[in-house]
């Protein structure tokens, strides 16, 4: 068995250590004897989703956003949307999450159009939502811990559901208690930290989804996960004490 993991824009969407998610998926596959092929799709490179089993998109700096949006519009957006509709699992973090939505409106009213792959939008606020945070995730069957750092407030439309419910911190907008978004096999979240290594159940859920889509059936043998659990439990305990 093997999975082809496509990392979109590793050249500009590479802030906050989010590439650790790719490394995490790669290792957790390798430890189980499954081959992982990571394909980088930087600016200027054509994106063909035909052989793609899993897509990762991270967050980036505002400075390069214009360059990126220029590259993303047109063919790449169409390919990405088709892949999502086709059920390709996607993990999108922070800026990458926002970009899957319809638009970003700055606090002074300027609108920047995004891919529109997901029924959600983001509005900039002057308050920055920063800190360690925690949310429940029924599908993963556990609490998820991470670090959020965003000024955009994301609001979900009726076509998507949240990834989880906030226990500590802000989440999507600091108002409705939701965090992240789920649509088909898209998992989107504000969580850096980075997300997957210390939330191994969520990591395995993503991998299992991708393997099942490709091979019909997939059993992921359990891993020891002592280091993963220790890092998870440390932050879970710290945030529970608050």
């Amino acid at each position: 068995m093997e999975l082809n993991i496509y990392h979109l824009y590793p050249d500009v969407l590479n802030l906050y250590g989010d590439r650790g998610n790719v490394l995490c998926m790669q290792r957790r596959l390798e430890w189980r004897g499954i081959q992982a092929n990571v394909v980088n799709v930087p600016i200027g490179e054509k994106f063909t989703a035909k052989d793609c089993d899993l897509i990762f998109i991270g967050g980036g700096q505002d400075f390069e956003q214009a360059v990126l949006l220029d590259d993303l519009k047109g063919a790449k957006t169409a390919e990405l949307k088709a892949a999502i509709e086709d059920g390709v699992p996607v993990l999108a973090i922070c800026g990458g999450y926002q970009m899957l939505g319809q638009y970003y409106k700055t606090w002074d009213g300027q609108q920047c159009d995004f891919t529109g792959a997901l029924d959600l939008y983001t509005v900039g606020s002057e308050q920055r939502m920063i800190g360690n945070y925690m949310f429940t995730c029924e599908e993963a069957g556990c609490n998820i811990v991470g670090f959020e750092n965003h000024s955009g407030k994301t609001y979900l439309g009726s076509g998507v559901r949240p990834l989880g419910k906030i226990l500590e911190g802000y989440g999507n907008n600091g108002e409705d208690g939701t965090e992240g978004a789920r649509y088909k096999n898209v998992f989107a979240s504000y969580s850096h930290g980075c997300l997957l290594p210390k939330n191994p159940k969520l990591a395995d859920l993503l991998l299992k989804t991708a393997l099942e889509r490709k091979y019909g059936e997939a059993v992921l043998p359990p891993l020891a996960d002592e280091f993963e659990t220790a890092a998870h439990n440390y932050m879970e305990a710290r945030l529970s004490r608050k």
């Binding site: 906050y16 250590g17 650790g20 490394l23 920063i130 930290g193 980075c194 290594p197």
Partner: peptide, 9 residues
């Protein structure tokens, strides 16, 4: 820095 994510970079 309260965010330790950077160690992954």
């Amino acid at each position: 820095g309260r965010d330790v994510s950077w160690i992954w970079d």
